[in-house]
Simulated scan of single mutants.
Amino acid sequence: MRATLFSYVLRAYVRYALGMLAGLVLVFVVVDFVDRAKLYTGPGWVRDAAELYFYKAMMSVQQLGPAALLLAAGTTVSALRKQGEVTAIRALTFGPSALYLPILVASFVACAGLVVFDERVATYSGRRVDEITTQRFNKWGDWRFYYTPKQWFRRGDNIFFLRGGSAQEGFQDVSVFTVTESFDLRRRLDASGMFPVEGMRWRLTDVVERTFDGEGKTSVRRLPEAEYALGVAVTAFRIRPGRPEQMRASELREQIDARRDVGLATKQFELALHNRFAYPMAAFPAALLGVGLALRANRRGHLTAAIIEGLLTAVAMWGLMMVCRTLVLTERLSPGVAAWTPTVLLALVAGAVWLQREGLLHLPRRSLLVR
């Protein structure tokens, strides 16, 4: 009997979750297309727009998945309650765990699936959306902010200005400034090329070396070629352009280390790495919260209330995530705390609802949870 009940609730939850996800994705795609339809012009725009929105739909699965799991949890329990099946479950001496457990298992598996989906599908889809939007429809937005190659780097006492090239092929038209602890210029190297030799040694071609003694005197010498120990390995310059949300976890870790080595900001990349796991996993306590709200006593308008409560919770969490993201970018909050705060808060609220239901926690009667 217990296995049959578990399977029944599990199937109902999965069915509602898939339906909610499909509905949310469809609404997102339609609204986005209507809002941007005037941008899609030119020969073959229908085919290109269809491909664009296919990839946008893949991205929205990852973005809307937690909200769908939250809405499905409340809707499943509300539907069972409206049909009198929750009362029947209680009559058979099954407690709330008969509803919590299958939804807990299904939502946890779904959260893990969303992590894998984000890593394998959503990251690639995001890159394709940017490529189609810029190359086919000539809409750049903030593309340049993420894809313009970085030229200024710092490692120790050396500041590098690399105007062209790459770590693999060498850099062209470079300047290397060596500064003191008080940030006074001690040496400047200008070269037409900079190529890795071994370890932290580099070969510079067509070099103009200027040294400053700190007393206003400058010496200059020109060299066709010279080697310098610049205190940085070639791996430090492997800075990849692109949005951090569109990189895989291994790439994010690599970019965080590389950017930290050359004095570039890493907060946004650290936040994206934490969110790769924190954002999908927020759906787990959110689903449990949906069950707890749907089971509270003296509840009216079951299905409508479940949808409204789910949407309000999703909006509140989205707003909190935006606030946390802003605090990270302004260096007022660490990326780890910002990423996991919504998940932890959802878990605390879900736990409070469960404790209140069990009579272990007494909340004010004016609270939304017991009204």
Rank of each mutant, 00 (worst) to 15 (best):
L64M: 05
G65L: 07
A282Q: 08
F195P: 00
A278C: 04
S175N: 08
D213W: 07
A265V: 10
V197A: 15
G164E: 12
F183P: 08
F33R: 02
Q83G: 12
V179N: 03
I89C: 12
G126L: 05
D157L: 11
D130E: 15
G242N: 03
E215S: 14
V291N: 01
N138C: 07
L360T: 06
L92W: 09
D206Q: 15
L185M: 09
R186M: 13
R260M: 07
E131K: 14
A226S: 11
D184H: 14
Y16H: 10
P224S: 07
Y13I: 01
R259K: 07
L52T: 02
G19A: 06
A73N: 03
A106K: 02
S97E: 13
L273Q: 01
L355V: 07
S166R: 12
F183Y: 12
W143Y: 12
L293D: 03
P102S: 12
H362F: 15
A236S: 09
A352I: 08
R163S: 11
T134Q: 09
T133E: 15
A122M: 07
A49Y: 03
A191V: 06
A314S: 12
A98N: 01
G84P: 02
P280E: 00
A12W: 05
W354K: 09
G199L: 10
E331C: 03
A286E: 00
R248P: 03
M58Y: 03
E309T: 02
M317E: 04
L333D: 01
A50M: 13
T76A: 07
R253S: 09
L264Q: 11
F137Y: 09
E51V: 07
P241I: 04
A12D: 11
S334Q: 09
N298D: 13
F33I: 05
W45T: 00
A306F: 06
A22Q: 08
P285M: 05
N275H: 11
G19L: 05
K38W: 13
S182D: 14
L70N: 03
E169Q: 15
Q268S: 15
R365P: 02
M322Y: 10
T205I: 14
A249F: 14
A67G: 03
L303F: 06
A73Q: 03
V34K: 01
V197S: 12
V30M: 12
Q168T: 11
T87H: 14
L345K: 01
A233I: 00
L204K: 02
M247T: 00
G44E: 02
M200C: 14
G113K: 08
